[in-house]
Amino acid sequence: MTTTAVRARTEATAGRLPGAWVLGLHRGALEIRQFFRQRDQVVFTFAFPVVFLFLFASIFHDAVRGAGVTASQLYVPAMMASGIMSTSFQSLGISIAVERDEKVLRRLRGTPMPPTAYFLGKIWLVLFTGVLETAILLLAGTTVYGVDLPSDAGRWFDFGWIFVLGLTACALLGIAISSVPRSAKSASSVVVLPFLVLQFVSGVYISVNSIPDWMLNLGALFPLKWLCQGLRGVFLPDSAKVLEQAGSWEFGRIALVLAAWCVGGLALCLLTFRWKDRRQG
């Protein structure tokens, strides 16, 4: 090999590196495409809340005494909260653990892709699937189970920030928990078990007025309980407040807890996120 065969590289290296925002958009499109091609993922994170809404809201449909709502109506905001957590926490927790185990993350780290673009891509995926999931559940809730859409703008505003804060907090927790499983195979159980337990103690499957206080207090440490409560406040009539632990919707406290989880979750991610597992260096 003579030196004359070496290409003039000065020009080739002068090109500009593509920006994180644009790459984030491309990654988002790719993430969404990948998500919907993985049938088991779609069933697991996307179809579960819809199926559960249908089951629970059809089995339990009696009027709840003194609350002015039916059991079916209670299940609609509960499953919406569960769907938000499923498309963020569960989806990211499992998929990032798998990508780490299968060395997709290491491969990305070996390219000039800015790390921000990866996370932007995940945000787009979570937003897209979260909005779609919520829309499907809301459509089912209003058409089949007699939930009324809020008529005043204030409630829609509440819905907006509850959705955004809840989705963000759960997504950050999902990214954080993705570092826990040691392999792709164990990812589902490591992520799904705590999620399942949380759903029981946060009032998703079982109405908050029938859960023991100590369990509710445990659930209150995590975002899902507050997400459920906030969505009930948005989509149920005020008469249903009597079922709440505090006897009110507590929007202020919900905002505080969810925002605190966003900050705490971000800190947790920054501290624990790894592009490689230990074996990969």
């Binding site: 790719l30 091609r37 990508e99 997709v104």
Partner: peptide, 24 residues
């Protein structure tokens, strides 16, 4: 690398095209 690591659900063309975007 010694062991392969490309996203399984994408096609060859999609993957190569996407990775091309990372470079100047």
């Amino acid at each position: 690398w010694q062991d392969e690591s490309a996203p399984a659900e994408l096609t060859v063309r999609e993957t190569v095209r996407h990775f091309a975007r990372y470079y100047p």
